[in-house]
Simulated scan of single mutants.
Amino acid sequence: MTGPAPPTGAPRDVLIGERLGLSAILGVPQGAKGLVIFAHGSGSGRLSPRNNYVAARLREAGLATLLLDLLTPQEERDRRNVFDIALLAARLRIAVDWAAEQPETRDLRPCYFGASTGGGAVLRAAAADPRIAAVVSRGGRSDLAGADALARVRAPVLLIVGGLDEIVIDLNAGAYDAMRCERDLVIVPGAGHLFEEPGTLDQVVALAIEWFRRHVGDAR
Rank of each mutant, 00 (worst) to 15 (best):
A121L: 09
L144T: 10
A89K: 01
E75F: 13
L58W: 05
Q30M: 00
E210C: 00
L22C: 11
R50N: 13
N52K: 00
L144S: 08
L185N: 08
L15P: 02
I187V: 15
R57L: 07
R138S: 06
P189C: 09
D184M: 01
G21N: 14
P110T: 03
A208V: 10
T72A: 06
P198K: 08
G41L: 04
P4D: 13
L67D: 05
A100L: 04
T105N: 11
R213H: 15
E166D: 09
S44P: 02
L171W: 12
V54Y: 04
G3L: 15
R93G: 02
W211T: 03
L68E: 00
R152Y: 05
A86K: 08
H215L: 02
A99G: 11
P130V: 07
V36T: 07
S137P: 08
V96G: 11
P156V: 03
E18Y: 05
T200V: 00
I169T: 04
N172G: 09
R220W: 12
R93E: 09
L171F: 12
T8Y: 01
A147S: 13
L58A: 08
I169H: 07
R183L: 06
L26M: 07
A99P: 12
W211I: 02
A125Y: 06
A128N: 12
R141G: 06
A133F: 07
L164S: 01
V188K: 02
G45D: 14
H193G: 10
E75A: 13
N51Y: 04
T72C: 11
R213Q: 15
A219K: 00
D129H: 03
L71V: 07
E101W: 04
R79H: 15
L87I: 08
L123V: 03
V28A: 03
R79D: 11
W211R: 02
I25S: 14
A95S: 08
F113D: 02
E197V: 10
E60Q: 15
D177V: 12
R152E: 13
V36M: 09
G163N: 11
L68C: 00
T117Y: 05
I132S: 04
R183T: 05
A56I: 00
A133V: 06
Y53K: 14
V216Y: 00
A64F: 07
D107V: 06
V122H: 11
S116E: 12
G139W: 02
V168Y: 05
A100E: 10
R124C: 05
P103E: 15
D170C: 01
G21E: 14
I167C: 00
A145L: 08
V204F: 02
V204H: 03
G199S: 10
Y53C: 05
G3Y: 11
G17Q: 10
I167G: 04
M1H: 11
E104G: 09
P7Y: 12
W98D: 03
I37M: 08
D143T: 03
T117Q: 05
P156A: 00
F83V: 14
E60C: 05
R109W: 10
A178S: 15
A99S: 14
A64V: 10
F195I: 08
V188F: 01
I94R: 03
I132D: 09
G199Q: 10
L35C: 11
